[in-house]
């Protein structure tokens, strides 16, 4: 499949989604810009190019559509931006992010009925289990669509992840594509310093998974290619994981190169610098 033509049209989304991210976080002086910026290419590729779904026809049970779970729930800025721009809910609603009476909670929640969200996440390590349950349900329903999930790499320190990893291989849950944002950053510093994950590929392989990697998760074509390749590995009686190497804060120069921008908001001057680096392409909310 030749993908470069279509995917290139999506390049215009990248600076726009990054504008949304920094504007949303700046407006309430709260939220998580770093991981959001680093996952921008992933979200655009997944929602606009990979998933077989109809954002206008969101249903909780997700029958006959590909569905996605965000396990590292704190990167709502990128999630909400791409959900809105994909048509799950009005783009204008991004203004309400983290404000009182909003459907756009700090971490994703079903409680307010926001289309696109199927489970609350944010307390880390839980999304993979939920995604596996949804994948089992698809099998029981004879639904041939795929379940996608994103985990942070720091999140893999949670024990529940490895319970789920064992379960997936044992029960041959092969209609799921798990992706990992391997930015090597977490709140207290580099993942390798806080609690080293070691050889992640070898760990998943030892658990009985098929492992794919994307060396540059901040290149739209590379990540789209990697997702296509990883998806082609599904339905072979083994769960599939794609390890995506990304840069936290990618696209805003002063937010790159450290873990410092995990969960802090830019001030007015920093916002302007971030916006200058990401021109308006699709129209600000």
């Amino acid at each position: 499949m030749s993908i470069t033509k279509d995917i290139k049209e999506l390049e215009a989304w990248l600076p726009q989604v990054r504008r949304d991210i920094v504007r949303m976080v700046h407006a309430v002086q709260s939220g998580h810009p770093g991981g959001s910026l680093g996952c921008t290419e992933f979200f655009v590729a997944l929602f606009q190019y990979i998933m077989d779904h109809d954002p206008k026809k969101f249903t909780m049970d997700g029958r006959d559509q590909d569905i996605f779970f965000l396990s590292n729930g704190h990167i709502t800025p990128v999630y909400y931006s791409v959900l809105a721009r994909s048509g799950f809910f009005p783009i204008e609603e991004l203004r309400t992010f983290r404000r009182i009476n909003s459907r756009l909670q700090g971490h994703p929640a079903t409680h307010e009925g926001l289309p696109g969200i199927r489970v609350a996440t944010g307390s880390l390590g839980q999304g993979l289990s939920v995604a596996l349950g949804a994948a089992l349900a698809k099998k029981l329903n004879g639904d041939l669509h795929t379940v996608f999930t994103l985990q942070g790499d720091g999140e893999l320190q949670e024990g529940q992840i490895w319970e789920a990893a064992m379960f997936a291989a044992h029960h041959k849950v092969d209609n799921i594509l798990v992706t990992i944002d391997r930015n090597n950053r977490q709140i207290d510093g580099d993942v390798s310093d806080v609690m080293d994950l070691g050889d992640l590929k070898a760990k998943f392989e030892a658990f009985g998974w098929l492992v794919a990697e994307c060396e540059n998760g901040n290149n739209l074509i590379e990540i789209a290619d990697a997702l296509l390749l990883a998806k082609s590995l599904t339905r072979n009686e083994k769960p599939v994981v794609l390890i995506m190497h990304t840069e936290m804060g990618h696209g805003v120069d002063f937010m790159m190169g450290s873990h410092e921008w995990h969960g802090i908001a830019p001030n007015d001057e920093q916002l302007q610098r971030a916006l200058e680096q990401n021109p308006e392409t699709l129209g600000d909310y």
């Binding site: 909780m60 939920v130 349900a137």
Partner: peptide, 12 residues
């Protein structure tokens, strides 16, 4: 812990 998450997912 995994069991509770998988149960939640099956409802979906």
């Amino acid at each position: 812990a995994n069991m509770m998450g998988i149960a939640a997912g099956l409802t979906i």
